[in-house]
Write a protein that binds this DNA or RNA. Structure first.
Lengths: 147, 147
DNA sequence: TATTGTTATACTCTATAACTATA
DNA sequence: TATAGTTATAGAGTATAACAATA
């Protein structure tokens, strides 16, 4: 499931509808390219996402779950599958022996890098067509939306 | 799996990172509120999405699949579950007897409306904090991103 | 022959609850 | 007692392939 931003009945004016449509398009295009690249490596979206997160540094299982916004029990399975393929490994945490750190293997790091390379233009560089002033403008508008 | 917009290694500048982070926040907040409202009706996100789509008008199973960007075989199951709960029904298509139209029941329409009502402020009105000139600006920037 | 929808199958993701090992 | 992670279980979404009915 994934992407299409289903909108609740919004105020019916054309401008608002168009903006919401465009926001949905941005998200859809991003996920589409991302999942397509993941599939080339026989990875699911979740697996690719975990690998990308771990490529930035090892994380305790619990924190991984928080990042993914799911229950910790699910992370066990995802990391299991990545481990079975030699892309991720579990390490002990020195300071707290209850904790297990998920960390990418060498091959995991290479795969993460390859996956990034094989991303379509948009997913690799979503703001590529905006110059700096436009990016500032966009930042301001998004901040306002969430305010 | 859902929401957190995992970014590929982007150009490292702070501004770009912030904008991507904000885009991820917008999407996450939207889905969070949407799924929460769906859960109040014991509906999954996909089921709620289908119900919302059908509330706008009946659709052939095939078109429903295209909207959801998944295989038609999956739609069978989703519509089955909504049908089992009396929210959706299948109708024959007059012009082509191969086609089955998925359509909301009376109760389905009521549920769709209630769900919309129970959405959080942001999901119900994502652009609520932007005035018209800001919406135009945002539309222009998003168009440029996708160009 | 091609298309629509379904069925059958298998895998992944998901949450809940119970379990273990540490703290 | 409380916390980190796992296991067990069950439900839902997903794709692929094969099938029936209709075009």
């Amino acid at each position: 499931m994934l992407v299409p931003m289903t909108r609740p009945k919004p105020p019916g004016d054309q401008l608002t509808l168009e903006v919401l449509e465009l926001l949905g398009d941005v998200v859809a295009r991003y996920y589409e390219e991302y999942d397509k690249a993941a599939a080339e490596f026989t990875l699911t979206g979740s697996q690719a996402r975990v690998l990308a997160l771990l490529a930035l540094g090892p994380l305790p299982m619990r924190q991984l779950a928080q990042r993914l916004k799911c229950e910790p029990s699910n992370v066990t399975g995802i990391v299991d599958r990545l481990t079975a393929r030699g892309l991720v490994e579990r390490r002990a945490d020195e300071s707290d022996r209850r904790v297990k750190l998920a960390a990418p293997t060498e091959e995991g790091l290479r795969t993460a890098a390859s996956l990034r390379e094989s991303l379509g233009e948009f997913a690799r560089e979503p703001l590529g067509r905006l110059d700096e002033p436009s990016r500032r403008q966009l930042r301001e508008l998004l901040r306002q939306m969430l305010a």
